[in-house]
Simulated scan of single mutants.
Amino acid sequence: MKVAIGIDIGGTKTAIGLVAPDGTVLAKTSLPTDLALPPSVMVDNIAGAAKRLVGEKELLPADLQGVGIGAPGPLNTKLGQIAEPPNLRPWWGFPVVDAFKRHFDVPIVLENDATAAALAEKQTGAAKEADHFVYVTISTGIGAGIYSHGRLITGATGNAGDIGHMVVDPAGGDCPCGQRGCFEHIASGTAVAREASALLGRPVSTKEAFDLALSGQDAALEQLVQRVFRYIGVGCVTLINTFDPELIVIGGGVSQVGSPLFDAVSGYIRDHALNPSGRRTPVVPAALHQDAGLIGAAALVLTDY
């Protein structure tokens, strides 16, 4: 049985799974991403959890095709390093591929987590029939995976698609990256929670903010959410004008808002995309949710991406 280990490293949780070539998740587990631990120790813990899954499935060494790792950027995939992701500061400059090589004598591949998720959506999700699409994840932050002419577009160091830090509205305030009005700073789930909390004068979760806004219970929150939908539309139009995709796939926690988001974004695209064909670009929800990172990370090993 051919399998790959998929590892999806996040700022709060790391998911680990065994994945078959057709994208089926055979077994999975997760660990908290403990930023108080040195990254080398976290890698030891992740590798130990992966080896336990291999043992439980009674796999032979020859069955394991490799290890795929998805992680938030910036990365340096050529060097196999975590570069400077804001949510993984203790990992900055960490040679993650070399660290896993201490545990596994198989090919090990590192890519941006959104890029890996795009590959998963191509393999078994919403973009199976598309040769040109952009996967956009909107959650704690915002990122994208770009698939064009039948291949992933990863860039010189694996950071193509870091759209969270393209400027959408310079009046949107200071982003931690140093620019003003970055897409992520004004339209992510984090941004919604931050702005809603300021409006209500108490801590508000992203879900509660959307629920209150879309139920019509708070006019100020409704204006906030409609502004965020417009910003997401701006981001998608920029992607359409730049990459000419046949499809936009939106995933991440904010996509769970459903039709209010997709209707608003599609409407903005119809009004503002430059090319007439671009104005008709379908915008669809991701088909894969919690397992997208696992499937995509494993697909880095199992497919010729």
Rank of each mutant, 00 (worst) to 15 (best):
L261V: 05
L302D: 01
V192G: 02
L200D: 02
E195R: 15
N241R: 11
G233I: 00
V228K: 10
A196F: 01
P260T: 04
Q290L: 13
A298W: 02
S255D: 09
F243W: 13
I269L: 01
V284W: 07
G252V: 10
A198M: 11
S266I: 00
S215K: 12
P285T: 08
F229N: 13
A273W: 01
V237N: 02
L224P: 02
A287K: 15
F243L: 12
D291Y: 00
P260S: 10
S215F: 09
I250P: 01
V228H: 08
F229A: 14
L199S: 06
L288F: 03
R194H: 09
R280I: 05
R280K: 14
V225L: 12
V225P: 04
R227H: 13
A292D: 05
G201N: 03
L224I: 08
Q290T: 13
S266W: 00
L239T: 05
L247E: 04
A198R: 15
L288Q: 11
L214P: 07
L302N: 02
G216L: 09
G252K: 11
S197I: 03
V284I: 15
L221G: 09
V237A: 07
A297W: 05
A196R: 01
G216S: 12
L261D: 09
P285A: 08
G233R: 03
Y231A: 12
A292R: 02
G235Y: 02
S259Q: 14
T238G: 14
I248L: 14
V257W: 00
Y305C: 11
Y231C: 09
A298E: 04
S188P: 06
A286H: 01
I248Y: 07
L274T: 15
S259N: 14
T242S: 14
G235R: 07
R194D: 04
E246S: 15
C236G: 00
Q217Y: 07
H185A: 15
G258A: 05
A264K: 04
F243M: 12
F210W: 11
L224D: 07
V257H: 04
T303E: 14
N275F: 11
L300Q: 10
A287E: 14
G189C: 03
I248H: 10
E184S: 10
P203G: 08
A273L: 08
Y268Q: 03
D271P: 00
E195A: 13
L247V: 04
L214S: 06
V249N: 07
D271S: 14
A209P: 08
I295A: 07
A297H: 06
V228D: 03
L302W: 08
G233S: 06
L212D: 03
V192P: 00
I295N: 06
R280H: 11
S188V: 02
A196N: 06
P282Y: 08
T303L: 11
A287V: 04
N241S: 12
L239I: 13
G216Y: 11
T281R: 05
T190Y: 05
I269S: 02
G216N: 11
S205M: 03
A220I: 01
